[in-house]
Protein backbone atom coordinates (compact mmCIF):
# COMPACT_ATOMS: atom_id res chain seq x y z
CA UNK A 1 0.00 0.00 0.00
CA UNK A 2 1.19 3.51 -0.84
CA UNK A 3 2.37 5.24 2.32
CA UNK A 4 0.88 8.69 2.47
CA UNK A 5 1.02 9.16 6.22
CA UNK A 6 3.99 10.98 7.62
CA UNK A 7 5.98 8.73 9.89
CA UNK A 8 5.55 9.89 13.44
CA UNK A 9 8.68 11.01 15.17
CA UNK A 10 10.17 8.55 17.62
CA UNK A 11 8.98 9.17 21.11
CA UNK A 12 10.84 11.97 22.76
CA UNK A 13 9.58 12.93 26.12
CA UNK A 14 9.02 16.58 26.83
CA UNK A 15 7.23 18.25 29.70
CA UNK A 16 3.87 18.55 27.99
CA UNK A 17 3.79 15.01 26.65
CA UNK A 18 5.03 13.53 29.91
CA UNK A 19 2.28 15.35 31.81
CA UNK A 20 -0.32 14.22 29.32
CA UNK A 21 0.63 10.55 29.68
CA UNK A 22 0.74 10.81 33.44
CA UNK A 23 -2.56 12.63 33.63
CA UNK A 24 -4.33 10.06 31.49
CA UNK A 25 -3.04 7.15 33.54
CA UNK A 26 -3.92 8.84 36.82
CA UNK A 27 -7.36 9.67 35.48
CA UNK A 28 -8.04 6.05 34.53
CA UNK A 29 -6.82 4.84 37.92
CA UNK A 30 -8.93 7.28 39.90
CA UNK A 31 -11.96 6.78 37.68
CA UNK A 32 -11.87 3.05 38.26
CA UNK A 33 -11.25 3.29 42.00
CA UNK A 34 -14.35 5.44 42.10
CA UNK A 35 -16.23 2.92 39.98
CA UNK A 36 -15.34 0.15 42.44
CA UNK A 37 -16.62 2.30 45.29
CA UNK A 38 -19.83 3.02 43.40
CA UNK A 39 -20.23 -0.68 42.73
CA UNK A 40 -20.28 -1.43 46.44
CA UNK A 41 -22.88 1.32 46.78
CA UNK A 42 -24.89 -0.45 44.07
CA UNK A 43 -24.88 2.56 41.78
CA UNK A 44 -23.09 0.42 39.21
CA UNK A 45 -24.30 -3.14 38.70
CA UNK A 46 -23.72 -6.16 36.51
CA UNK A 47 -20.12 -7.11 35.83
CA UNK A 48 -17.34 -4.61 36.48
CA UNK A 49 -13.84 -5.47 35.27
CA UNK A 50 -11.13 -3.09 36.36
CA UNK A 51 -7.96 -2.23 34.48
CA UNK A 52 -5.93 -1.11 37.50
CA UNK A 53 -2.26 -1.85 36.84
CA UNK A 54 -2.64 -2.04 33.06
CA UNK A 55 -3.11 1.69 32.34
CA UNK A 56 0.20 2.09 30.53
CA UNK A 57 -1.02 -0.17 27.74
CA UNK A 58 -4.13 1.77 26.75
CA UNK A 59 -2.46 5.14 27.18
CA UNK A 60 0.72 4.16 25.37
CA UNK A 61 -1.05 2.58 22.39
CA UNK A 62 -3.49 5.47 21.93
CA UNK A 63 -0.60 7.87 21.40
CA UNK A 64 0.16 6.18 18.11
CA UNK A 65 -3.41 6.33 16.78
CA UNK A 66 -5.18 9.14 14.97
CA UNK A 67 -8.81 10.13 15.53
CA UNK A 68 -9.66 8.38 12.24
CA UNK A 69 -8.36 4.99 13.34
CA UNK A 70 -10.83 2.35 14.55
CA UNK A 71 -10.65 0.81 18.00
CA UNK A 72 -12.21 -2.36 19.36
CA UNK A 73 -11.88 -3.62 22.88
CA UNK A 74 -13.09 -6.05 25.51
CA UNK A 75 -15.28 -5.83 28.62
CA UNK A 76 -12.21 -4.44 30.47
CA UNK A 77 -12.32 -1.27 28.44
CA UNK A 78 -12.78 1.77 30.69
CA UNK A 79 -9.10 2.59 30.26
CA UNK A 80 -9.25 2.37 26.49
CA UNK A 81 -12.38 4.49 26.37
CA UNK A 82 -10.91 7.21 28.58
CA UNK A 83 -7.57 7.20 26.77
CA UNK A 84 -9.44 7.49 23.50
CA UNK A 85 -10.99 10.69 24.77
CA UNK A 86 -14.54 9.56 25.40
CA UNK A 87 -16.03 11.92 27.95
CA UNK A 88 -15.65 10.54 31.48
CA UNK A 89 -19.16 11.69 32.36
CA UNK A 90 -20.64 9.75 29.47
CA UNK A 91 -18.73 6.64 30.51
CA UNK A 92 -19.84 6.96 34.12
CA UNK A 93 -23.43 7.60 33.06
CA UNK A 94 -23.24 4.44 30.96
CA UNK A 95 -22.11 2.46 33.97
CA UNK A 96 -25.08 3.85 35.87
CA UNK A 97 -27.38 2.81 33.01
CA UNK A 98 -28.53 6.36 32.32
CA UNK A 99 -29.68 7.67 28.95
CA UNK A 100 -26.81 10.16 28.86
CA UNK A 101 -24.33 7.29 28.77
CA UNK A 102 -22.15 6.74 25.71
CA UNK A 103 -24.30 3.72 24.78
CA UNK A 104 -27.49 5.36 26.02
CA UNK A 105 -27.38 3.20 29.13
CA UNK A 106 -28.16 0.03 27.19
CA UNK A 107 -24.69 -1.45 27.43
CA UNK A 108 -23.25 -0.75 30.88
CA UNK A 109 -19.63 -1.18 31.87
CA UNK A 110 -18.89 -3.97 29.41
CA UNK A 111 -20.33 -2.27 26.35
CA UNK A 112 -18.95 1.23 25.91
CA UNK A 113 -19.46 2.52 22.37
CA UNK A 114 -18.76 5.92 20.82
CA UNK A 115 -18.89 5.98 17.07
CA UNK A 116 -17.72 9.59 16.87
CA UNK A 117 -14.53 8.50 18.57
CA UNK A 118 -14.46 5.39 16.40
CA UNK A 119 -14.68 3.28 19.51
CA UNK A 120 -16.54 0.11 18.57
CA UNK A 121 -17.03 -1.56 21.95
CA UNK A 122 -16.87 -3.08 24.60
CA UNK A 123 -17.26 -6.78 23.56
CA UNK A 124 -17.87 -9.28 26.36
CA UNK A 125 -17.56 -12.55 24.47
CA UNK A 126 -13.86 -13.33 24.70
CA UNK A 127 -12.30 -12.90 21.22
CA UNK A 128 -15.71 -12.10 19.75
CA UNK A 129 -14.53 -8.78 18.37
CA UNK A 130 -11.37 -10.04 16.69
CA UNK A 131 -12.95 -11.12 13.41
CA UNK A 132 -14.91 -7.87 13.36
CA UNK A 133 -11.64 -5.99 13.58
CA UNK A 134 -10.38 -7.77 10.47
CA UNK A 135 -13.54 -6.75 8.68
CA UNK A 136 -13.20 -3.12 9.68
CA UNK A 137 -9.62 -3.11 8.47
CA UNK A 138 -10.75 -4.79 5.26
CA UNK A 139 -13.40 -2.12 4.73
CA UNK A 140 -10.72 0.58 5.03
CA UNK A 141 -8.56 -1.22 2.54
CA UNK A 142 -11.37 -1.72 0.04
CA UNK A 143 -12.36 1.94 0.24
CA UNK A 144 -8.73 3.04 0.10
CA UNK A 145 -9.10 4.83 3.41
CA UNK A 146 -5.72 5.16 5.01
CA UNK A 147 -6.75 4.29 8.57
CA UNK A 148 -5.75 1.39 10.70
CA UNK A 149 -7.87 -0.68 13.04
CA UNK A 150 -6.59 -1.40 16.52
CA UNK A 151 -7.94 -4.37 18.44
CA UNK A 152 -7.32 -4.97 22.15
CA UNK A 153 -7.75 -8.41 23.75
CA UNK A 154 -6.33 -10.55 26.55
CA UNK A 155 -4.00 -13.53 26.82
CA UNK A 156 -7.04 -15.73 27.33
CA UNK A 157 -8.47 -14.70 23.97
CA UNK A 158 -5.37 -16.06 22.23
CA UNK A 159 -6.57 -19.60 23.02
CA UNK A 160 -9.84 -19.10 21.14
CA UNK A 161 -10.25 -20.28 17.58
CA UNK A 162 -11.42 -16.79 16.65
CA UNK A 163 -7.94 -15.42 17.38
CA UNK A 164 -6.29 -17.86 15.00
CA UNK A 165 -8.83 -17.35 12.25
CA UNK A 166 -8.41 -13.62 12.64
CA UNK A 167 -4.64 -13.79 12.38
CA UNK A 168 -4.80 -15.92 9.27
CA UNK A 169 -7.39 -13.73 7.57
CA UNK A 170 -5.57 -10.53 8.46
CA UNK A 171 -2.34 -11.84 6.95
CA UNK A 172 -4.00 -13.52 3.97
CA UNK A 173 -5.90 -10.38 3.03
CA UNK A 174 -3.08 -8.06 4.07
CA UNK A 175 -5.14 -5.59 6.06
CA UNK A 176 -4.00 -2.67 8.23
CA UNK A 177 -4.73 -4.18 11.63
CA UNK A 178 -2.90 -3.68 14.91
CA UNK A 179 -3.57 -6.65 17.19
CA UNK A 180 -2.76 -5.67 20.78
CA UNK A 181 -2.64 -8.51 23.26
CA UNK A 182 -2.75 -7.36 26.87
CA UNK A 183 -1.02 -10.28 28.49
CA UNK A 184 -1.80 -9.90 32.18
CA UNK A 185 -0.87 -13.54 32.82
CA UNK A 186 -4.38 -14.63 33.79
CA UNK A 187 -7.63 -15.42 32.10
CA UNK A 188 -9.97 -15.13 35.05
CA UNK A 189 -8.37 -17.64 37.43
CA UNK A 190 -6.38 -19.55 34.85
CA UNK A 191 -2.70 -18.68 34.75
CA UNK A 192 -1.14 -18.48 31.32
CA UNK A 193 0.90 -21.65 31.90
CA UNK A 194 -2.33 -23.62 32.17
CA UNK A 195 -3.80 -22.02 29.04
CA UNK A 196 -1.00 -21.92 26.54
CA UNK A 197 1.44 -24.57 25.39
CA UNK A 198 3.63 -21.73 24.11
CA UNK A 199 3.58 -18.89 26.57
CA UNK A 200 5.54 -16.35 24.53
CA UNK A 201 2.34 -15.31 22.84
CA UNK A 202 4.07 -13.03 20.34
CA UNK A 203 5.58 -16.10 18.68
CA UNK A 204 2.14 -16.95 17.35
CA UNK A 205 2.55 -14.07 14.92
CA UNK A 206 5.27 -15.96 13.08
CA UNK A 207 2.99 -18.89 12.28
CA UNK A 208 0.78 -16.55 10.29
CA UNK A 209 3.55 -14.52 8.70
CA UNK A 210 2.61 -11.52 10.82
CA UNK A 211 5.28 -9.24 12.21
CA UNK A 212 5.29 -9.18 15.98
CA UNK A 213 6.88 -7.67 19.05
CA UNK A 214 6.58 -7.92 22.81
CA UNK A 215 6.93 -4.95 25.09
CA UNK A 216 7.00 -4.16 28.78
CA UNK A 217 3.41 -3.11 29.32
CA UNK A 218 4.20 -1.54 32.68
CA UNK A 219 6.17 1.25 31.00
CA UNK A 220 4.05 3.70 29.08
CA UNK A 221 6.99 5.15 27.15
CA UNK A 222 8.06 1.75 25.92
CA UNK A 223 4.49 0.91 24.95
CA UNK A 224 4.16 4.19 23.08
CA UNK A 225 7.40 3.60 21.23
CA UNK A 226 6.46 0.06 20.26
CA UNK A 227 3.02 1.21 19.15
CA UNK A 228 4.43 4.00 16.99
CA UNK A 229 6.82 1.58 15.35
CA UNK A 230 4.05 -0.93 14.76
CA UNK A 231 1.69 1.66 13.32
CA UNK A 232 4.43 3.01 11.08
CA UNK A 233 5.04 -0.50 9.76
CA UNK A 234 1.37 -1.12 9.16
CA UNK A 235 1.11 2.08 7.15
CA UNK A 236 4.29 1.35 5.24
CA UNK A 237 3.45 -2.26 4.37
CA UNK A 238 -0.31 -2.39 4.59
CA UNK A 239 0.10 -5.55 6.62
CA UNK A 240 -1.10 -6.46 10.12
CA UNK A 241 1.08 -6.34 13.23
CA UNK A 242 0.86 -8.34 16.46
CA UNK A 243 1.99 -6.50 19.58
CA UNK A 244 2.03 -8.24 22.96
CA UNK A 245 2.08 -5.95 25.99
CA UNK A 246 3.16 -7.81 29.12
CA UNK A 247 1.28 -6.44 32.06
CA UNK A 248 -0.61 -7.40 35.22
CA UNK A 249 -3.98 -6.71 36.74
CA UNK A 250 -3.65 -5.60 40.35
CA UNK A 251 -7.25 -6.21 41.26
CA UNK A 252 -9.61 -9.16 41.00
CA UNK A 253 -10.89 -10.31 37.60
CA UNK A 254 -14.29 -8.82 38.37
CA UNK A 255 -16.13 -7.84 41.49
CA UNK A 256 -17.02 -11.49 42.16
CA UNK A 257 -13.53 -12.95 42.36
CA UNK A 258 -12.02 -14.29 45.60
CA UNK A 259 -8.58 -14.62 43.92
CA UNK A 260 -7.93 -18.14 45.10
CA UNK A 261 -5.62 -18.76 42.15
CA UNK A 262 -2.69 -16.45 42.93
CA UNK A 263 -0.51 -15.53 45.87
CA UNK A 264 -0.79 -12.11 47.39
CA UNK A 265 3.00 -11.91 47.30
CA UNK A 266 2.90 -12.20 43.51
CA UNK A 267 0.46 -9.30 43.31
CA UNK A 268 2.66 -7.27 45.66
CA UNK A 269 5.72 -7.97 43.51
CA UNK A 270 3.93 -6.62 40.45
CA UNK A 271 2.64 -3.61 42.34
CA UNK A 272 6.25 -2.53 42.67
CA UNK A 273 6.15 -2.10 38.89
CA UNK A 274 3.07 0.11 39.03
CA UNK A 275 3.25 2.19 35.83
CA UNK A 276 2.01 5.38 37.46
CA UNK A 277 4.65 5.89 40.19
CA UNK A 278 7.18 4.62 37.66
CA UNK A 279 6.41 7.43 35.23
CA UNK A 280 6.23 9.95 38.04
CA UNK A 281 9.68 8.93 39.17
CA UNK A 282 11.01 9.10 35.65
CA UNK A 283 9.60 12.56 35.04
CA UNK A 284 10.85 13.82 38.40
CA UNK A 285 14.31 12.47 37.60
CA UNK A 286 14.34 14.27 34.26
CA UNK A 287 13.04 17.38 36.01
CA UNK A 288 10.02 17.37 33.76
CA UNK A 289 7.65 17.58 36.68
CA UNK A 290 7.65 18.45 40.37
CA UNK A 291 5.97 16.99 43.43
CA UNK A 292 3.77 20.01 43.41
CA UNK A 293 2.75 19.46 39.77
CA UNK A 294 1.78 15.90 40.68
CA UNK A 295 -0.30 17.08 43.62
CA UNK A 296 -2.07 19.56 41.37
CA UNK A 297 -2.69 16.82 38.89
CA UNK A 298 -4.17 14.59 41.58
CA UNK A 299 -6.52 17.38 42.51
CA UNK A 300 -7.54 17.90 38.91
CA UNK A 301 -8.17 14.18 38.47
CA UNK A 302 -10.31 14.09 41.60
CA UNK A 303 -12.35 17.00 40.30
CA UNK A 304 -12.83 15.45 36.88
CA UNK A 305 -13.92 12.13 38.36
CA UNK A 306 -16.33 13.90 40.68
CA UNK A 307 -17.71 15.81 37.71
CA UNK A 308 -18.28 12.53 35.91
CA UNK A 309 -20.11 11.09 38.92
CA UNK A 310 -22.25 14.21 39.24
CA UNK A 311 -23.11 13.98 35.56
CA UNK A 312 -24.13 10.35 35.95
CA UNK A 313 -26.16 11.07 39.08
CA UNK A 314 -28.02 13.84 37.32
CA UNK A 315 -28.77 11.62 34.32
CA UNK A 316 -32.17 10.21 33.42
CA UNK A 317 -33.61 6.73 33.16
CA UNK A 318 -34.97 5.72 29.82
CA UNK A 319 -38.75 5.23 30.07
CA UNK A 320 -39.94 1.61 30.00
CA UNK A 321 -42.08 2.49 26.98
CA UNK A 322 -38.83 2.64 24.99
CA UNK A 323 -37.89 -0.94 25.94
CA UNK A 324 -37.89 -2.45 22.46
CA UNK A 325 -36.02 0.36 20.77
CA UNK A 326 -32.82 -0.35 18.86
CA UNK A 327 -33.72 -3.83 17.69
CA UNK A 328 -33.93 -2.83 14.05
CA UNK A 329 -32.71 0.31 12.32
CA UNK A 330 -35.33 2.71 11.16
CA UNK A 331 -37.05 5.97 11.88
CA UNK A 332 -37.23 5.46 15.63
CA UNK A 333 -33.67 4.13 15.86
Amino acid sequence: MENTIAIQAATTIDRAHGSELLYQMMMIRRFEEKAAELYTKMKIRGFLHLYVGEEAVAVGIMQALTPEDNILSTYREHGHALARGIDAGKIMAEMYGKMEGCSRGRGGSMHLFDVEKRFYGGNAIVAGHLPIAVGMALACKKQKINNITCCFFGDGAVAEGAFHETMNLAALWSVPLLMVCENNLYAMGTAIRYSHAVQELEKKGAAYGIEFAAVNGMDVLQVEKAAREAVEKIHRTGRPFFLVCNTYRFRAHSMFDAELYREKSEVDEWKKKDPIPALQKQLLGLQLTTDDDIKQMEKKVDQEVQKAVDFAEAGTWEPVSALTKFVYSGPNK
Binding site: G105, W317, V320, L323, V327
Partner: peptide, 15 residues
Amino acid sequence: AEVPMPYPKHLEDAS
Protein backbone atom coordinates in the same frame (compact mmCIF):
# COMPACT_ATOMS: atom_id res chain seq x y z
CA ALA B 1 -39.67 -9.17 25.40
CA GLU B 2 -38.31 -9.27 21.85
CA VAL B 3 -35.21 -7.22 22.56
CA PRO B 4 -31.58 -7.93 23.43
CA MET B 5 -31.26 -7.55 27.20
CA PRO B 6 -30.77 -3.91 28.18
CA TYR B 7 -28.41 -3.14 31.08
CA PRO B 8 -30.52 -0.91 33.37
CA LYS B 9 -32.45 -2.73 36.08
CA HIS B 10 -35.84 -1.23 35.28
CA LEU B 11 -35.57 -2.19 31.62
CA GLU B 12 -34.31 -5.68 32.43
CA ASP B 13 -37.23 -6.21 34.82
CA ALA B 14 -39.65 -4.92 32.22
CA SER B 15 -38.36 -7.33 29.62
